[in-house]
Amino acid sequence: MLRLVVLISGGGSNLRALLEASEDAEFPARVVAIGADRDADGLAHAEEFGIPSFVVPFGAYPTREAWGEALVEQIRQWEADLVILSGFMRLLPPTAVHALAPNLLNTHPAYLPEFPGAHAVRDALAEGATQTGASVIVVDDGVDSGPIVVQERVPIHPGDSEAAVHDRIKLVERRLLVETVLGIANGDIDLRDLA
Rank of each mutant, 00 (worst) to 15 (best):
L43T: 08
A44L: 14
H45I: 10
H45N: 01
A46L: 05
E47C: 10
E47W: 01
E47Q: 09
E48I: 12
E48F: 12
E48V: 15
F49G: 02
F49P: 04
F49R: 10
F49W: 08
F49S: 08
G50H: 02
G50R: 03
I51V: 14
S53F: 10
S53C: 10
S53N: 12
V55Y: 08
V55I: 13
P57A: 09
F58D: 07
F58A: 11
F58E: 04
G59C: 06
G59P: 01
Y61D: 13
Y61Q: 08
Y61L: 13
P62G: 15
P62F: 14
R64F: 09
E65Q: 15
E65G: 12
E65C: 06
E65W: 12
A66D: 11
A66S: 14
A70F: 04
E73T: 15
E73K: 13
E73D: 15
Q74D: 14
I75E: 03
Q77L: 11
Q77K: 11
W78S: 00
W78M: 11
E79A: 06
A80Q: 01
A80H: 00
A80T: 07
D81E: 04
L82S: 08
V83T: 11
V83H: 00
V83P: 00
V83G: 00
V83I: 01
I84S: 00
S86C: 05
S86R: 03
G87W: 03
F88L: 07
F88P: 00
F88R: 08
F88G: 03
R90N: 13
R90Y: 11
L91K: 07
L92Y: 05
L92N: 01
L92D: 01
T95Y: 07
A96V: 07
A96F: 13
A96M: 05
V97G: 12
H98R: 15
P102Y: 03
P102S: 06
P102R: 04
N103E: 12
N103K: 07
L104F: 05
L104E: 06
L104N: 00
L105H: 00
L105P: 00
L105D: 01
N106P: 05
T107N: 08
T107P: 01
H108N: 01
H108T: 04
A110C: 11
A110Y: 03
Y111T: 06
L112K: 00
P113F: 06
P113T: 06
P113I: 09
P116V: 04
P116K: 06
P116C: 09
G117S: 00
G117H: 03
G117E: 07
H119D: 14
A120N: 05
V121S: 01
V121R: 02
V121C: 03
